[in-house]
Write a protein that binds this DNA or RNA. Structure first.
Length: 269
DNA sequence: CCCGTGCCCTGGCGGC
DNA sequence: TGCCGCCAGGGCACGG
């Protein structure tokens, strides 16, 4: 669920809490979260200092001394800063700092992944290497040409991080609503004008959501006690049977590419 | 190469 | 009240 705005919110909040902390020890009660031999990971990360926290698409990148730790939160990964509290059921990695505090990675569904690479190899991480630019940095002509040559639903294309980075289920539904485009439309049938409009709305929706600290729906929460406010501005996502904010027609929920999708059947043709 | 499907995983919810 | 079965979904592996 965390998409670009939620991951960016986590990044902004977390960096102020962990910058300059030294990682003294790592516990991993559920080792598969870490995509390496656990002992190698623990030995390699030990004594490195957290210098910065970056983001590429939905990936968080902890910049250490010699290595970068790349974390994808997937559906419901989150972080908490704690001290001596007991380890909870869904805390799958605990980074103990020399200061006595620790950073805990919490993930009920265990979908998230943690990878450690040498700093100059970040761009070789397969997920990051394949990332397209975010909407605000897209070359619209190039994007339009790529869409022209595909035979997939536009929603499927917008979710494909190799075509455009940062959008997930929530922001794709919102983008397509504001652009007045039906999620099942084939990308090859879109006009240049529609693609331009779509990219503009994606850019705007993401920027506005970042401004509001992301959307808090279902389980997403950035850091303990902190809630985003973008959910108050959602036009269609999660709004089944509620009136369309433009034409009052009830919003319907359909499936597109296996994903739950909210649409105004009148505004989106 | 392109596209569709299934997998990972668990809490929550609907149905009875 | 309790239990069963199914759904949610980002990224990736796999197969046609």
């Amino acid at each position: 669920m965390p998409e670009l705005p939620e991951v960016e919110t986590v990044r902004r909040q977390l960096i102020n809490l962990i910058r300059d902390e030294t990682i003294a020890r790592v516990e991993a009660p559920f080792p598969p979260i870490i995509t390496h031999d656990l002992h190698w990971f623990q030995d390699t990360i030990k004594d490195q200092v957290i210098r910065d926290l970056d983001r590429k698409g939905k990936f968080l990148i902890f910049m250490l001394d010699r290595h970068a730790m790349i974390i994808h939160l997937r559906m419901e990964g989150r972080f908490h800063i704690k001290k001596d509290e007991p380890v909870l059921k869904h805390e799958h990695a605990i980074f103990h700092f020399a200061s006595g505090r620790n950073l805990r990675y919490h993930d009920v569904r265990k979908f998230g992944r943690i990878t450690l690479v040498e700093k100059d190899r970040v761009m070789h991480h397969p997920g990051i290497a394949a990332l397209a630019p975010e909407p605000k940095h897209l070359d619209v002509n190039h994007f339009y040409r790529r869409l022209k040559h595909k035979r997939v639903a536009v929603k499927t294309a917008l979710l494909d991080q190799r075509l455009v980075a940062g959008l997930g289920n929530i922001y794709v539904d919102e983008t397509l609503f504001h652009a007045g485009i039906h999620p099942k439309r084939l990308t090859s049938s879109l006009t240049k004008k529609q693609v331009v409009r779509m990219v503009e709305h994606a850019t705007h929706v993401l920027a506005r959501a970042v401004e509001l600290g992301g959307a808090t729906i279902r389980s997403y929460q950035a850091i303990t006690g902190v809630h985003g406010r973008f959910q108050n501005e959602l036009a269609v996502h999660t709004k089944k049977d509620e009136p369309c904010p433009i034409c009052q027609t009830p919003i319907i929920k359909i499936k597109v590419g296996g994903r739950g999708t909210y649409v105004c059947p009148k505004c989106q043709q």
